[in-house]
Design a binder for these strands. Structure first.
Lengths: 319, 319
DNA sequence: TAATTTTACGTAAACGATGTCGTTGTACTT
DNA sequence: AAGTACAACGACATCGTTTACGTAAAATTA
């Protein structure tokens, strides 16, 4: 008991006793047993992080930031991938809550899955990243999807492109809906009649679909790609079809990736603060866990910026 | 007790009783308490994975594979980043072993850290990925670094380049030493006198150093970059200095990255089976955990392949 | 049929830390 | 000097599960 009090920093332990305990701990190489602590209801000092795909650049940057922020407060991170499958996601959440973790950071693949209600009803705090959920109220951290998409398409409009198409993937996600809405807003504002929205499924199947779009008689002169995967698919398709990007067809993507500077012409894209997203979400979750944050759930929206390079038709990279 | 037997699949439970228990479990929404199970020494069905940097493409692909293989056997994965700092790495291992995990997958930042002895001496199985350790014997899974580097440099030699330089980072790592050795072997075999080994530190500091190398009077006509970071730094430097890659200077990198196909000219690189590395290591670890693998430690070396594209001077991408 | 084994369950103890409470000793009142 | 307050510590029960063991009843054997 005295050892327990010493370790947990309770008062009522004389300095001499504390010293003796410390020495014994060192001598015996004693470490408190984590499992026993859990059994008495202590915090585990660990959080769970569930993302669709670890190897996606965007999520790997987010994960890195989460890890860093958590470690700074001596928290460990469980990382799991849902592979965009709600069933797997539900199983991962289940495993984590029972393991147990003190809180969960979730990039939900669906916003209306019924199981989401259950986890939020439990006493494990949840913060969603990137995408909010609809069936329950949680803290969430995201970015300005609609405004960001508008910025991107506005830039294409200013270049004078008349036929701006939108290419997306996973269009059922709220983030994607918002970006597509931004695309529409911009066209409406500019009073453009041409509107062409294409949803891609996977790298393999997108090839044919993109080739059709890019070689049609009435083909677009500019493309807005709503996420990094579709941006990359467009770049691939243009390269294969030998269509000059930034000259024959302009391209602006949503979500900037490091190597976009290395491509010729370099790729203009909306930059999301991926690392900050992870940091902010983690700090918020840890505050919830420690009870430092009592108010009802908050939704934090981080701003995005348009990083202008060459694929939009600008001669030199500006930002 | 009967419930415990039922759940753990012990014999000596009548079908009727089992059914009753199942119904009660469903009705009460009962889930065994993980902490209590840990306390009695059961397996946690979780493993730890420690990599230097999650956002590095290579490690994110490895992590993805580990996650997948583990999940297939109902194992959860703790992912932590050591940030190439032995102190952090030791702390992460400590946290994990006490948390507890059934086994650890480690990409060690150092091969001689004394703490490594301790963890191997403990009863938590360890499998190292990519880099072996020296101070203790563990299972390890890696790739043919020396032979792969030789393949790469041989290819440059065959092109007829006379002055082939080697650019690396973290040259103290055994993997890097092996690749540099492969570079030397190839030059020795070809009886080339020119030999220039440059170790880069970080993106920022590498700029000036690279510029000096690439603009010197006696500058190389080909470069072998020993990992993906240095390959990317070289590409950046060439682009900034307006030196034509594959024409003015050839480039072959070690570790292939998806976007190398999107760069003009596309980048020739030694492809490591990153996903397989993760799969093999995880399967091996799980076998150790389940006692299915009793023999002394094994070292698995996976083959690498040279993916020939254009930056080496070849006109068309072959592979 | 009686002795023995096997099956199906329950009971007690243990894992290691912590909350509660009781006990002792010290300092401070009045 | 006696009473009160509180500091410092230990004993005991507790968390939820499993291991070890006990005890019947059922099945098998002699």
């Amino acid at each position: 008991m005295t050892v327990s009090r010493m370790i947990n920093g309770h008062p009522y332990v004389t300095p001499e006793t504390a010293k003796k305990v410390r020495e014994a701990i060192r001598k015996l190489n004693y470490r408190p047993n984590h499992a026993a602590r859990m059994l008495t209801g202590k915090l585990s000092r660990s959080i769970g992080l569930i993302v669709p795909d670890i190897s996606d650049t965007f999520f790997s940057v987010v994960s890195h930031a989460v890890q860093e922020t958590a470690r700074a407060q001596n928290y460990l991170v469980w990382l799991a991938a849902s592979e965009d499958d709600p069933t797997i996601e539900a199983a991962q959440v289940e495993s984590m809550t029972h393991h147990p973790v003190d809180g969960i950071l979730l990039v939900p693949t669906q916003s209306r899955e019924p199981y989401l209600k259950a986890i939020v009803a439990g006493n494990t705090p949840v913060v969603t990243i990137d995408r909010p959920i609809e069936v329950a109220t949680t803290d969430s951290v995201g970015v300005e999807n609609q405004a960001g998409a508008m910025m991107a398409v506005d830039h294409l409009v200013e270049h004078g492109y008349k036929k701006i198409a939108c290419v997306s993937a996973n269009a059922h996600l709220q983030t994607m809906k918002d970006r597509i809405a931004g695309y529409r807003d911009s066209l409406r504002k500019a009073k453009r009649s041409y509107q062409n929205e294409l949803e891609l499924k996977s790298s393999a199947s997108s090839k044919a679909v993109l080739a059709e779009l890019l070689t049609a008689r009435n083909r677009p002169d500019a493309i807005f790609a709503a996420n990094n995967a579709s941006t990359i698919w467009v770049i691939e398709a243009l390269k294969e079809l030998n269509i000059q990007m930034g000259k024959d067809i302009a391209l602006v993507g949503f979500d900037d990736v490091d190597f976009f500077t290395l491509i010729t012409p370099s790729v203009t894209a909306v930059r999301q603060p991926a690392a900050e997203l992870g940091n902010v979400a983690t700090r918020l979750l840890l505050q919830r866990i420690n009870g430092e944050f009592k108010s009802t759930s908050v939704r934090t929206i981080l701003p995005v910026t348009l990083t202008i390079r060459e694929s939009c038709g600008c001669r030199r990279a500006i930002a």
